[in-house]
Amino acid sequence: MERYPESRLLYAIREIEPDDCAPIRSVAEAWWGGPVESDCLTKWFFRHFRQTCFVAVKEGRIVGFVLGFLSQSLPDEAYIRLVMVAPDCRGTGIARALYDEFIETVRDLGRSAVVCVTAPSKSGSIAFHTRLGFRMDAQQRMAEGLPVCDDYDGRGGRRVVFRLELKDRV
């Protein structure tokens, strides 16, 4: 279902398709600003998590995407793994629309919280998540004035862990 029809916002949001993998992989590094070491930019992810992964399409071109899934271990949670928007489309509401689509979908599927992470150096990402109502999870240590989790994904590095309680979001 398209909650954001193209005629209204100049782009449409739809469920991801396995055939979207190649076009997304072809732009990911340019959009990210460097190498993307993500296991979710594979066709299997697009095939097995379609219900909770979405693309924004403008004039036939993918201009953004959100990749997420329902946690199997934590039955109340959904997790946003990766979000990107084309540089020429940033600031147009696409990221918010992608998050809204994900959040409404996982709420409809019975989840009560959404979790995601970002690097402490990504001030724009931190501000964006805060504007959307996400709260930073308390962690065992602070770095750069933020609560950080060391080695969140087993690859080293620090991450700020965000949580959105869906009961708090209207």
Rank of each mutant, 00 (worst) to 15 (best):
E2T: 13
E2D: 15
R3N: 08
P5Q: 11
P5F: 04
S7Y: 02
R8Q: 11
L9Q: 08
L10V: 07
Y11M: 10
A12W: 00
I13Y: 00
E15R: 03
I24C: 06
R25V: 15
S26R: 15
A28Y: 05
A28K: 05
A28D: 08
E29R: 14
A30K: 15
W32A: 13
W32G: 11
G33F: 07
S38E: 13
D39F: 01
C40H: 09
C40A: 06
L41D: 06
L41S: 07
L41W: 06
L41K: 08
R47H: 04
F49K: 08
F49T: 06
C53N: 10
F54S: 11
A56W: 02
A56V: 08
V57M: 12
K58G: 12
K58D: 15
E59M: 11
I62Y: 03
I62M: 04
I62W: 02
V63M: 11
V63L: 10
F65K: 03
V66K: 03
F69E: 05
F69K: 06
L70R: 01
Q72D: 08
S73W: 13
S73C: 06
S73H: 06
P75A: 12
P75I: 09
E77D: 15
E77L: 07
V83Y: 01
A86W: 04
P87T: 02
G91Q: 12
I94D: 11
A95E: 11
R96C: 13
R96A: 13
Y99N: 01
D100T: 08
E101G: 00
E104A: 01
E104Q: 06
V106A: 00
V106Q: 00
V106S: 00
V106I: 07
R107P: 01
D108F: 00
D108R: 00
G110F: 01
R111M: 00
S112L: 00
C116H: 02
T118L: 06
A119H: 12
S121W: 06
S121F: 08
K122H: 10
K122T: 05
S123T: 12
S125T: 11
A127E: 04
F128W: 04
F128D: 05
H129G: 05
R131V: 03
R131Q: 14
F134K: 07
F134D: 05
F134C: 09
M136H: 02
D137T: 05
D137L: 12
A138F: 12
Q139S: 12
Q140T: 15
R141C: 13
E144S: 11
L146F: 13
C149A: 14
Y152C: 07
G157R: 10
G157P: 10
R159Q: 13
V160C: 13
V161I: 07
V161C: 06
R163M: 02
E165C: 04
L166Y: 01
L166W: 00
K167S: 05
K167Q: 10
D168Y: 00
